[in-house]
Design a protein around this nucleic acid. Structure first.
Length: 311
DNA sequence: AGCCAGGTTTAAT
DNA sequence: ATTAAACATGGC
C-alpha cells in the first residue's frame, strides 16, 4: 500500500504599512502572457525562493485592502524561520519604501498628482537578490520587453532549479554558480545574442568566484557603484542604474537613457521629438532621491496603456 | 515586409 | 571627443 505524503505548509500573515495595493503586483507580473519566475493568477502571487540553498514555494494573497493591507502567506515545504521569508517578501513587495516622501513631492505637480492617485499604493517590486536584477537588465538591453521576457523564460527553464508541487513545475531563477558554468554558446542557443551570452557568463563567474559581491555594494555611493560596475564588460550606465532600482531598491539611481522612459517623459511633456537623457534627468530632478521611484510611476502610467492588464 | 524595441562594445573619424 | 556599425529577436 502506498503512503501519500502531504507536504507540510507554513502559514502566517504579514501586515504591510499602508498604502499597499496588492492588485498592482498582479498587474505588473501578468501584463504579458509570458510569465516565468514571478507568477500571478487568481489573485495569488507565487514564486520560488532560494534560501540557504533550499527551494521554497511562496504563495501570497491579499486578505486586506489598500488602506488596511494584510497578506496571507503560505510556504511549501514547511520552514521554521518565518521571519526570513517575511523579510524577503517585505523587500520584494517594496513594503519598506518611503511612499509618503515620494508622494509629497509628486503631489505638488497637478499632472503628476493624477498619476499618483491612479497608482495609489503601487510599490516598486524588487528581486530577492541583486544578481537577478542584473541578469534581467542584461537580457533587456536594446530589445522589446516581450522579447526580453521570452528570452528570460528560456534561460530560467534551461538553468533554473525547479520544484514540482501539486503537479505543477515551478522554476527558481538561475544562480550565479549555475550560469558561471554555462557556456556562452549554449546560452546563444536560447536565442540570446552571443555578446549578451558572454556578458551573462562573465558576470556570473565574477559573482560565483566571490570577486564581485553585489549584495555588499548596496552600501556604496551611487556614483561609486556605477563606476565600479560599468568597468565590467557588458554593463553600461543603463544596466547598472536599472539594476540599482530593481535589485537594490536604490531610487536615487535613474536609468535616464531608457528608451521607454524617454518616450514616457516625451509624452508627458507633450513634446514632438523624443527627449534626450539630459532632459530626463532634469525632469526628475525635483524628486531628489526618489527620482527612480517617480520614473517607475511614470513609465508604468504609459506602460499600462500600451500593455493593458490581462485576465 | 521592414522598422523598431526599456543598450553596449568596438572601431573608425 | 563624437559617430557608426554590429549584435539578433519578435511584435506590430
Amino acid at each position: 500500500m502506498l503512503l501519500r505524503f502531504r507536504m507540510e505548509i507554513t502559514k502566517f500573515s504579514i501586515t504591510p504599512k499602508r498604502p499597499f495595493n496588492f492588485e498592482f503586483v498582479g498587474t505588473l507580473y501578468s501584463r504579458f502572457p509570458i510569465q516565468c519566475v514571478d507568477l500571478y493568477s487568481h489573485n495569488t502571487y507565487e514564486r520560488i525562493l532560494n534560501l540557504g540553498d533550499k527551494l521554497y514555494l511562496v504563495r501570497v494573497k491579499s486578505i486586506g485592502s489598500v488602506d488596511k493591507p494584510e497578506l496571507s502567506i503560505e510556504v511549501i515545504p514547511n520552514i521554521d524561520d518565518k521571519k526570513l521569508i517575511e523579510k524577503k517578501l517585505r523587500w520584494m513587495f517594496g513594503l519598506g519604501d518611503d511612499l509618503e516622501s515620494f508622494y509629497k513631492i509628486g503631489l505638488k505637480d497637478k499632472n503628476f498628482a493624477k498619476i499618483i492617485r491612479n497608482f495609489y499604493g503601487l510599490r516598486a517590486p524588487k528581486t530577492p537578490i541583486v544578481f537577478e536584477a542584473l541578469i534581467i537588465a542584461i537580457t533587456e538591453q536594446q530589445i522589446a520587453l516581450p522579447v526580453a521576457i521570452t528570452l528570460r523564460k528560456r534561460l530560467v527553464e534551461e538553468y533554473g532549479k525547479s520544484l514540482t508541487i501539486e503537479g505543477k513545475r515551478y522554476y527558481a531563477f538561475p544562480t550565479p554558480e549555475i550560469l558561471a558554468k554555462a557556456s556562452p554558446n549554449d546560452i546563444k542557443k536560447l536565442k540570446f545574442s552571443l555578446r549578451k551570452s558572454e556578458y551573462i557568463v562573465n558576470v556570473s563567474k565574477m559573482v560565483a568566484q566571490g570577486k564581485l559581491n553585489l549584495e555588499k555594494m548596496k552600501e556604496l555611493d551611487t556614483v561609486k557603484i556605477i563606476d565600479i560596475l560599468t568597468k565590467i564588460r557588458g554593463l553600461g550606465p543603463w544596466t547598472v542604474e536599472y539594476m540599482m532600482c530593481r535589485g537594490m531598491g536604490r531610487y536615487d539611481a535613474l536609468p535616464a537613457n531608457d528608451l521607454a522612459l524617454r518616450t514616457s517623459v516625451t509624452k508627458y511633456l507633450r513634446r514632438k521629438e523624443r527627449v534626450i537623457e539630459k532632459e530626463v534627468r532634469e525632469f526628475f530632478e525635483p524628486f531628489g532621491k526618489h527620482r527612480g521611484y517617480a520614473a517607475f510611476y511614470l513609465i508604468y502610467h504609459y506602460a499600462f496603456q500600451k500593455y493593458p492588464k490581462k485576465e
